[in-house]
Design a protein around this nucleic acid. Structure first.
Length: 212
DNA sequence: CGGAAGATCCACT
DNA sequence: GTGGATCTTCCGA
């Protein structure tokens, strides 16, 4: 049996809650836990504090825009609840949660998280020191993946299995009044879509990738 | 088969 | 605020 923290029992997320529109899922994922099982003794946990919705076929910023099918984007057309992980700028991995149940290519990018368990290992993975801030550790999609040792070898796995190397677990819901929305980051190429308010975060959280 | 671009991060000014 | 790193992915010829 894998060792589990007794003070913080983690319940896997219900896939049903991910088979909804990406805007809904992006907000619902705020406050939930992302769990990385490294081996039988080491578990890393981050609380998700910032997300972005990508609207699949109808979104110029999405890799699935106009139903584009390439070897890389196949994962986006899986059922909701799978991980879509890709390499960006030749350097950084980005983690998405595929959403919906109609193979639209919808997904939610996990942009930032707050270290909950295994902070020392995250700091080592990020080549930081003990004085590192939450924003330095996982305040950005590439940083978050590096902190949790997430790369493309985990692409396309389901995220509801607590025995898998990576899964989502239920957290404490975030009040609607604490959620802020704004334009997405790094998509200047996407024309009008660059202003769509599909970036969501916990208001004023110290681990956000950028202020609103 | 060449070339351009990229859902980022960091160091430097 | 600016530019470089770094390499996969994709498109067009």
């Amino acid at each position: 049996m894998p060792h589990k923290s007794t003070k913080n029992p983690l319940t896997p997320i219900k896939p049903r809650s991910l088979r909804l529109p990406p805007q809904n899922v992006a907000q619902a994922l705020l406050g939930t836990y992302l769990v990385r099982n490294l081996n039988s003794c080491n578990t890393l946990v981050i609380r998700i504090v910032e997300t972005e919705a990508y609207l699949g076929q109808t979104d110029p910023a999405s890799h699935a825009y106009q139903n584009k099918r390439t070897p890389r984007t196949q994962t986006l057309y899986l059922n909701g609840g799978h991980a879509y992980i890709y390499l960006i700028y030749g350097l950084h991995n980005c983690l998405n949660v595929v959403t919906g149940n109609n193979t639209n290519g919808d997904a939610v990018l996990i942009r930032a998280g707050e270290p909950i368990e295994g902070r020392d290992i995250m700091i080592a993975n990020r080549n930081l020191t003990r004085s590192a801030t939450p924003r330095q550790i996982a305040g950005g999609p590439g940083k978050l993946c590096q902190a949790l040792a997430i790369d493309r070898t985990l692409n396309a796995i389901p995220l509801d299995n607590p025995d898998a190397p990576l899964y989502l677990a239920q957290g404490t819901p975030v009040k609607k009044s604490q959620i802020i929305a704004g334009p997405r980051i790094g998509i200047d190429y996407a024309g009008e879509a660059k202003d769509w308010p599909l970036r969501y975060a916990i208001r004023n959280h110290p681990a956000l990738s950028k202020p609103f």
